[in-house]
Design a protein around this nucleic acid. Structure first.
Lengths: 146, 146
DNA sequence: CGGCATCCGAGGTGATACTG
DNA sequence: CAGTATCACCTCGGATGCCG
């Protein structure tokens, strides 16, 4: 029987990945996903997007309270970055005291869908990963250790 | 009229996100997605997973050549981390010269699906983001600048 | 309240050299 | 070939203080 060929891996999938990876260079010389990750692969961006999707139009302090462990600075920086990328819309009301509202743009909402998939995956497989980590550490205890 | 309620945002989606965010704490006191991101939110992990999904069972050096810009060290570290999380399987053949093969575990393949969604999103919206960035910079030139 | 500027330490990342 | 080890950098991210 066919040992390695195709296996249960659809050829179509391979093509898809190839497209993601190769895609006409972005001018930066990187594939789109790479370029995307450069800006977006940090733990706060995704959490902010998810929480914005959850909350609707939270104010700055509301958002800060929602996201466990985030500092004011990081929330500011992350929001600014997302705003710059066109994923988040910032509305500042010139009131006293000042008020700011944040919400996802349509582009941001489209990303939210993907983020949700990722979140659901994490939620679903979290236990598996934790288990794998323990096994790994047990198996390699004193082996690959320094 | 109901100003903020529901809007065009399905209630079901809100519930889903809430679940992702709140889920019974992971023991670390963080929601699953947060915990996941702590280990996984760096630019290399996702690229390695995607390339492994693409290549099948590449050797170390093959993988290194596939991923633009990654250093030997970072590839090693990333692979080790993924292996520890149970996403990647490493087969080392005791030959001369040595040979190592890497492949995704079933768990890793399930993540691949999600990564592909992310990759397709990035590929699809990359131009939009680039455009948004330029606009943002133009609009705020000398405004929010230092 | 909603930021921004600054300082500073910890850790991520790369270059280089070495080993089995 | 497939790593490990060491070092040096340099960005990330927290703490603090100030402003509109």
């Amino acid at each position: 029987m066919g040992v390695t060929i195709v296996e249960n891996q659809p050829v179509e999938r391979i093509k898809k990945i190839g497209k993601i990876l190769d895609d006409k260079k972005t001018g930066t010389g990187l594939c789109p996903i790479h370029d995307f990750l450069n800006h977006f692969a940090n733990k706060w961006s995704m959490l902010v997007v998810l929480n914005l999707g959850y909350a609707g139009k939270p104010r700055f302090s509301e958002l800060k309270n929602m996201i466990t462990g985030i500092s004011q600075r990081m929330l500011t920086v992350t929001l600014r970055s997302l705003e710059e990328d066109g994923l988040v819309l910032r509305k500042l009301y010139a009131e006293i005291p000042p008020r700011a509202e944040y919400e996802l743009t349509p582009l941001g909402k489209s990303l939210l869908d993907v983020m949700m998939s990722l979140g659901e995956w994490a939620s679903k497989h979290e236990a598996e990963i934790t288990k794998a980590r323990k096994q790994f550490r047990k198996a390699n205890n004193g082996l690959r250790k320094k």
